[in-house]
């Protein structure tokens, strides 16, 4: 009988992997999760966390103030000083900055460092990449918009405002926020996918959002009040993403409008809905078209 050896050297050489390989769908989901976390700087450098976290804070602050005010004044007013569905429009600059910072961080970065080929030489297809990135940024924006709404909601409940009514309003506003998120993420990503230079991406997104909103609002104001043509002013709202989605939720979700002019009548409402979906579809198509052409090596 041999003696039991008391020492042993383990083989720490190369190990084969025979565990599960999860396939396209799960890879796409992993990229989605990774990109979503990345949008808030999680899993990235400390510097990458500063801006998104700061914006999240800035976004939440007015909601918190509103919640406090509501609790102080609810006996007199019996409601929130600002309806849920208007919050996005009021805080539009924050949304624009978030998008301008994070859409290029998501796409331009992969283009600049040429990591795209590494993704495409893996199980996913190009459309999976687009889906994961689009989904992630839309979710990130949605979360940015949701947090303040939830704060207001909690404030409203604490102030003992009617729970059923508040819940209904909140859900509708969340639905609106989702549409905002999908439209804005799409526009931001399309622009970001065109340049490997982050700075240009940031500038272009800000330019498009700020300029279109400023121009459309100015025009709408002048036409509605100086000319008194509310219908035409309403139609003009189609021309900027912010006023478009605002019109969408005004008409579909019966939200209170923040634009100078809401969609003109039922026909206008239908057009707003169609244009909103067309914009989302166009962003999706453009992104896929763009990534079909990205060279792999």
């Amino acid at each position: 009988m041999t003696e039991q050896p008391s020492g042993v050297i383990h083989d720490i050489g190369y190990r084969k992997y025979d565990g599960p390989r999860l396939g396209r769908a799960r890879v796409t989901r992993a990229l989605y999760a990774h990109s979503l976390r990345g949008a808030y700087g999680l899993g990235r450098s400390a510097r990458a966390k500063v801006l998104p976290m700061l914006l999240l804070g800035v976004m939440a602050l007015p909601a918190f103030i509103i919640a406090v005010i509501t609790n102080v004044t609810s006996d007199i007013t019996g409601g929130l000083p600002l309806p849920y569905s208007r919050y996005v429009m009021v805080t539009m600059p924050i949304l624009a900055i978030f998008l301008a910072a994070q859409a290029p961080a998501s796409l331009s970065r992969d283009l600049r460092f040429k990591t795209v080929p590494l993704y495409f030489s893996r199980p996913m297809e190009r459309s999976d990449y687009v889906l994961a990135k689009y989904g992630a940024l839309a979710t990130a924006v949605f979360l940015l918009l949701t947090l303040p709404l939830l704060i207001m909601y909690v404030g409203a409940l604490l102030a003992e405002l009617p729970a059923g009514e508040q819940t209904g309003d909140l859900l509708l506003a969340l639905l609106g926020a989702a549409v905002f998120a999908v439209v804005f993420a799409g526009i931001g990503l399309v622009i970001a996918s065109l340049t490997p230079r982050r700075g240009f991406g940031v500038a272009a997104i800000i330019t498009v959002l700020a300029l279109s909103f400023a121009a459309v609002s100015a025009l709408q104001g002048i036409i509605r009040y100086e000319v008194g043509d509310a219908d035409l002013a309403g139609w003009l709202g189609l021309l900027s993403p912010a006023t478009l989605v605002d019109g969408f939720q005004t008409w579909v979700l019966d939200a209170s409008s923040s634009s100078v002019a809401p969609p003109p009548g039922a026909a206008g409402g239908v057009v707003y809905v169609l244009v909103t979906f067309a914009v989302i579809g166009a962003c999706w198509a453009l992104l896929n078209l763009r990534y079909r052409k990205v060279a792999v090596s």
Partner: peptide, 14 residues
């Protein structure tokens, strides 16, 4: 108002 807000304040600097 229009030229001040859209042109001088936004278009030209951008």
């Amino acid at each position: 108002d229009f030229l001040g807000a859209v042109s001088v304040a936004a278009l030209v600097p951008l």
